[in-house]
Simulated assay, not measured.
Amino acid sequence: MTESTPLSSLGKGDGLHQQVLASFPLCDLAEEDLTRNPLFCKLLATLAQHVDQTGLTASLRSELDKAEQKLQSQRRHWLRSESLHRGLQEMIQDCSVRKHHAIVPPDQTMFHETMEKCLLVAQCVRQLDPSTTTNQDQPSILGLNTQQVMELMPPEKNVQRMKQSLPRELEKHLKKKCLNLLAYYQPEWENESEGLKNSKLSHLSVQLDNEQKRAKGMKETCRENTVLLQRQTQLYLSELVKCIQLLQSLILDHRLKTQTDLDRKKLEYFEGKCELVLQKIKAEMVEIQLDTYTADAISAHRKIREKLQSELKTRRVEKQSVEMKLASFEILGRDFEALAEEYCRLLQEIEAKNWALKEFAQYNQK
């Protein structure tokens, strides 16, 4: 997207939101954030015309690319010298290992010893030679200088012979390492012919480069998928929270609406249950009465009741006549009350004497 691209060409609504999210994948933004803040969304859309996905401007990206190219060039130069140095050290180590397992030809021994001494002298000279970043006035190591160390070089004849054999030996060593790498990368080619291995080896760098690019692409895809998964997770969680809140409100409303009906049904249930219990009690009482009062007992009770009612009626009549007599006696006053008491006392004495005579007569008859 160039700087001259108008804002209207970015799209509207959901399309604008998707383009803004795609333009800033490293920002932790969700589509809801852009929807709630439309001005901020427009600001990001305008900013996307001047920066890339990493947040760098075009000029800064150009300078960064140039610096990256320079760094890559220096890195390749360093890797070339470093790989050459390590290859030479590996050749020396391989020779030392072979000495313990087999007899090494004298020329090979001389070659590796000369190369080892040359590497050690070169390393010491490099340590003694101050670079532009070090202090020129610092004292030398152990009081040595470059000329004194160079005197330890092997004889010139051995050095020249070593230099003549070095390219061939180094090529053999590097080829062996490449074949080992090929056997590790593609084990099925280990038992193939030398020519086929060389042919396959010529394409190994391209294959490794393609594999590296594919790995970077997969890594980038994985990163994008991670960002997308995080956004989808946030969106899912927000939607889940909304669903939970809606479900809680539905449950609360449903509970409030159905509580009255539930209470009414419970009341009807308990009323019916109480009525059933009362009817059962009445049925038990009737059953007890039926078991207790037979037809003969009811007939006898009815006769007894009739007799008691007739006697009660007779006693009520007698009571009424006695009450009338008492009322007539009360009219006579207090004088008659003494006579009545005397009369009662005499009646009691008469009854007592009659009882005594009756008992006496029964005793004489015996």
Score class of each variant (00 low, 15 high):
residue 308 L to A: 12
residue 241 V to W: 03
residue 4 S to K: 12
residue 152 L to K: 11
residue 60 L to R: 15
residue 220 E to D: 13
residue 116 E to H: 04
residue 313 K to A: 11
residue 104 V to M: 02
residue 94 D to W: 02
residue 83 S to Y: 08
residue 300 A to L: 12
residue 25 P to F: 00
residue 190 E to A: 15
residue 227 V to W: 03
residue 12 K to H: 11
residue 31 E to R: 04
residue 255 R to F: 06
residue 236 Y to I: 05
residue 286 V to A: 11
residue 245 Q to W: 03
residue 177 K to D: 09
residue 197 K to R: 09
residue 250 L to Q: 13
residue 83 S to H: 10
residue 218 M to V: 08
residue 224 E to F: 06
residue 313 K to L: 07
residue 51 V to C: 01
residue 160 Q to I: 08
residue 123 Q to W: 02
residue 279 Q to W: 05
residue 192 E to I: 01
residue 115 M to I: 10
residue 363 Y to H: 15
residue 343 Y to V: 06
residue 337 E to M: 05
residue 304 I to E: 09
residue 242 K to Y: 04
residue 200 K to R: 12
residue 142 L to C: 05
residue 174 L to N: 07
residue 177 K to P: 02
residue 136 Q to A: 12
residue 1 M to E: 10
residue 209 D to V: 07
residue 19 Q to I: 01
residue 48 A to L: 03
residue 77 H to P: 01
residue 110 M to R: 13
residue 278 L to T: 08
residue 202 S to K: 08
residue 328 S to D: 15
residue 135 N to V: 03
residue 201 L to H: 00
residue 221 T to F: 09
residue 243 C to P: 02
residue 366 K to S: 14
residue 315 R to I: 04
residue 238 S to Q: 14
residue 125 V to Y: 00
residue 162 M to R: 01
residue 148 Q to V: 06
residue 310 S to T: 14
residue 267 L to F: 06
residue 215 A to I: 05
residue 344 C to F: 12
residue 360 F to T: 14
residue 68 E to W: 11
residue 171 E to L: 10
residue 34 L to V: 01
residue 70 K to R: 13
residue 174 L to G: 02
residue 309 Q to E: 07
residue 104 V to D: 00
residue 296 D to C: 00
residue 348 Q to I: 01
residue 316 R to H: 10
residue 61 R to C: 05
residue 26 L to E: 11
residue 359 E to S: 11
residue 58 A to W: 07
residue 317 V to W: 06
residue 3 E to F: 08
residue 201 L to D: 02
residue 14 D to Q: 12
residue 36 R to Y: 04
residue 4 S to P: 10
residue 26 L to G: 12
residue 206 V to G: 08
residue 253 D to Y: 04
residue 253 D to I: 07
residue 147 Q to L: 11
residue 221 T to N: 15
residue 308 L to E: 13
residue 226 T to E: 13
residue 89 Q to L: 13
residue 51 V to M: 00
residue 174 L to R: 04
residue 215 A to P: 01
residue 361 A to K: 14
residue 344 C to P: 02
residue 146 T to Q: 13
residue 180 N to C: 07
residue 201 L to F: 01
residue 255 R to P: 02
residue 119 L to N: 03
residue 159 V to K: 03
residue 267 L to G: 11
residue 74 Q to D: 12
residue 275 E to G: 09
residue 309 Q to H: 06
residue 78 W to L: 10
residue 255 R to N: 14
residue 11 G to Q: 02
residue 132 T to S: 13
residue 350 I to K: 06
residue 239 E to L: 07
residue 222 C to V: 09
